[in-house]
Design a protein around this nucleic acid. Sequence first.
DNA 1: AAACTATGTCGTATATTTACGACATACTTC
DNA 2: GAAGTATGTCGTAAATATACGACATAGTTT
Lengths: 115, 115
Amino acid sequence: MTYAKTTAFTDEQQQLARVAKALAHPARVAIIQLLASKKTCISGDIAAELPLSRTTVSQHLQELKALDLIRGEIEGLTVCYCLNTDLLRQVHEQFTSFFTGATHTDVCAPGSACC
Amino acid sequence: MTYAKTTAFTDEQQQLARVAKALAHPARVAIIQLLASKKTCISGDIAAELPLSRTTVSQHLQELKALDLIRGEIEGLTVCYCLNTDLLRQVHEQFTSFFTGATHTDVCAPGSACC
DNA sequence: AAACTATGTCGTATATTTACGACATACTTC
DNA sequence: GAAGTATGTCGTAAATATACGACATAGTTT
């Protein structure tokens, strides 16, 4: 490494990357869709609907929970997992503003002046 | 593994995860923002603006290129990298429809009937 | 064609992710 | 309280991602 450069990435970039990483596995995408499709919160049924072991699913659930994208509350013997829809909406906005910035009209792109 | 279950994840889930993975590192987020902020297409200057070695940046560029999110055309001695804005717009829509599905009103969530 | 410049590729070390069985915990029901 | 059920945690193996120096390639300029 030479010397100057940016010392690090911005918080915004790191935050977006963190959330993107949470969605970077089909199992986690599937879990979110599953929770969104259920009227009632489900628990271990999640594992039954995915082509993965219960242990692995649990691990994916923990990752989503670590980012607070989902929440789990113990309900007697089972655990009720729910989407944190407020946060998901926020995240949606983050992505939207990122993509909007990347696709605005006078951006460097094939077809524009520079290429 | 017991027996029934879904044998695999849907194409949609895999596609979303694939793109999310591309955004799952701050360097790649930064690269896209950098390309979006330049009027003219840049090349190796990218590495100069990131806290990473040229080799590593090149690796990240290849990953983005592999998904066709960016394109690079050799322009004499330098390479002109550009955003594939059309694809980025498509990806934006994919994310939007995913988030919309996950945040529609009667979803299982804290505060809703089920929790 | 020799020296220079801009990039990509290879080899490799280290860190992180993914996946799962076995075990631990904790509540429920008999 | 013993047996059963639902879930989380630990240990660990294998795959993938991250990072970078050294080398290769290819165009430019003299």
